[in-house]
């Protein structure tokens, strides 16, 4: 691969993803610049979360040519057998010209083929649309689980490197308390996960990700299901993070997106249909068409 420019954090090039006969992503490409807040918007079902899942290696991407078109009147198996037979005996002009496969680069690293946890270790962290947490662990513990490559997580170290573990625990605890203070949720320090409200869980998810000091943060609807006051608070916190890390955001709240984003990507039915600064997007005809229909 060629060397990427230094100011590029993430580059996803021509990503395809098919679920059976559904095309979720059709050659979407995004480029995320460092220390910027980039937004990804689009109607429901346009493939935003799928793109996130592919970038963070939760889903493997499909080969562009692997799409199986299923005529409705033909049974599935038969089509597949016919296709295989055609590939085997029907000449190889088809197989030679397979389209180029897309790729995902994070800084200087190619992420293709990594496991989800390996991708997370590169410094690219993500949150989920539904707030996930560990219900029986306290908030402080929720944060303490997060730091990566802890000494105490290796089985032998429990018995032989106690001192080091204790020091690390102390360091992490201090950091966790700092993050709690930063997110203004210090008061729920001693509560357990299942007692928290939806907004608090969103903040906790943010805090969990901050424990690992990520360079790129993928946020999947951080303000969904939260009241406006808290939503604005979460947004303020996200803006403060821009100093150290790049933020890539999926959001449906257009006010927030157009006010704070440095750049916006618009997705519709698996394709990136527009990209640019908020001002450019606001006047883009394609975007309006995608959101409001053809006749608008």
């Amino acid at each position: 691969m060629e060397k990427q420019p230094d100011n590029i954090s993430l580059k996803a090039h021509k990503i395809h993803k098919y679920f059976g006969g559904v095309k979720a992503l059709e050659g979407s490409s995004v480029v995320v610049t460092k220390n910027k807040l980039i937004s990804l918007i689009g109607p429901n079902g346009s493939g935003k979360t799928t793109l996130f899942n592919v970038i963070s290696c939760w889903l493997s991407k499909s080969h562009p040519d692997d799409f199986i078109e299923e005529p409705e009147d033909e049974p599935k198996l038969q089509t597949r057998i016919l296709k295989t037979l055609k590939k085997k005996f029907g000449g190889n002009e088809e197989t030679d010209e397979r389209t180029e496969v897309g790729y995902v680069d994070f800084e200087d690293l190619r992420l293709d083929g990594l496991d989800a946890h390996e991708a997370a270790l590169t410094g690219m962290m993500r949150t989920f649309q539904t707030t996930r947490n560990w219900p029986k662990l306290t908030v402080l513990e929720n944060l303490l689980v997060a730091p990566q490559n802890q000494t105490g997580e290796s089985f032998t170290n429990i018995f032989f490197k106690r001192k080091q573990i204790n020091e690390e625990e102390r360091k992490n605890t201090l950091k966790a308390l700092e993050i709690l203070e930063f997110l203004e949720i210090t008061h729920i320090r001693d509560q357990i996960g299942e007692e928290l409200s939806g907004g608090q869980l969103k903040l906790l998810a943010l805090g969990r990700l901050l424990m690992t000091a990520p360079r790129l943060i993928l946020l999947d609807e951080p303000m969904a299901g939260v009241n406006p006051t808290l939503g604005n608070k979460i947004m303020d916190k996200i803006l403060e993070l821009k100093v150290d890390s790049t933020i890539f955001l999926i959001e449906h709240n257009m006010d927030v997106v157009f006010n704070y984003s440095d750049e916006i990507f618009v997705m519709a039915s698996g394709k990136i249909i527009a990209q640019g600064t908020p001002n450019e997007i606001e006047t883009n005809k394609d975007v309006i068409k995608a959101y409001l229909g053809v006749d608008y």
Binding site: A116, A120, F128, N133, A146, M211
Partner: peptide, 10 residues
């Protein structure tokens, strides 16, 4: 409690 979140933190 939830293995997906554990994977997501690496």
């Amino acid at each position: 409690e939830d293995d997906i979140t554990v994977t997501s933190v690496g």
